[in-house]
Design a protein around this nucleic acid. Sequence first.
DNA 1: AAAGCGTGGCT
DNA 2: TAGCCAAGCTT
Length: 368
Amino acid sequence: MPTVQDSGGGYPLPALRFALLNWYQQQGRDLPWRHSRDPYAIWVSEIMLQQTQVATVIPYYQRWLATFPTLPDLAAAELETVLKLWQGLGYYARARHLHRAAQQIMTHHAGEFPRSYEAVVALPGIGRSTAGAILSAAFNQPQPILDGNVKRVLARLYGLTVPPKQAEAQLWQWSAQLLCPQSPRDFNQALMDLGATICTPRHPLCHACPWQHHCLAHRHQLTHEIPRKMSRSPLPHKKIGVAVIWNATGQILIDRRPPTGLLGGLWEFPGGKIEPNETVQECIQREIREELGIEIRVGEHLIDIDHAYTHFRVTLHVYYCQHLSGTPQPLECDAIRWVTPEELEQFPFPKANTAIIQAIHERGRPTA
DNA sequence: AAAGCGTGGCT
DNA sequence: TAGCCAAGCTT
């Protein structure tokens, strides 16, 4: 007795493949990295595209290739330069891994991007799906992929009734089994295009889908229920006191975050979490004493900023401060610098901090 | 193996 | 406004 999950529509694989490839030939997207067969360029695009939409990636991709045209160019760059180029794209570990992987390829692979799955998936920042995407796109190797688009397409095609997270092995098997052995490059790209343009999360365009008559979700009118979602707990909300500390010569104190973890390697304005029964001013004074070992006077309010990360949301309460005494030390960070407002542009800052920089330029030096 | 890790767009 | 979602990987 076939269930909704394992019947697969009952169509022969070649018919499914042909329908998709034919659609892709006519309706596939024209994307910058598809003009290249350079594994380095394709690798860069695939890393940028992790959890990130095409429209966001394109300008970053163009700037990246203009700045680092080849893999050795990237390997030879400073991490700071790499992070500055990545600024605003998020998930900054991707940039750190890209940089480190380039250096590993220089030393372990003579500067040539490796062609074996084992060697590629061993590189930092490259998992199973990204390895498959690179190897199929660059070398036309028959390696399956499984990103968000493919998960959604396959979940609907095969009528998957549990959340995709609970059926990873099954989804990988479907992706591998479906993959066209003659045209793995085009097939994988087609699968992603189908998910991005037709089989979308909210309003799928089933009438224009080459798999409309093969799709179990469509047949059973379950398109809007699949893929099933996992329930999430609400995001905690943190209140943060932030100091823009000025010295007597009109410079501002910034610090670099530790090299790993949240926003690792990026610069920021110092501060920290407001404890219960603590005013913002008290928090800022305490945090600066703990983090930098200096005394300050908390002055005028600059700006409040709301920002949402993946796992929590924050409100930054930003105040101008005056340096009173002590030499700042990197007690809880990686490095410290006094810089002029103009010099702030040279450093990689997270998004929530760029609004602070903007406000500094508008307000100027403290009046008192 | 479950949690951590950014940001922009849309509802 | 707050939540959801998007070409996942690492620890």
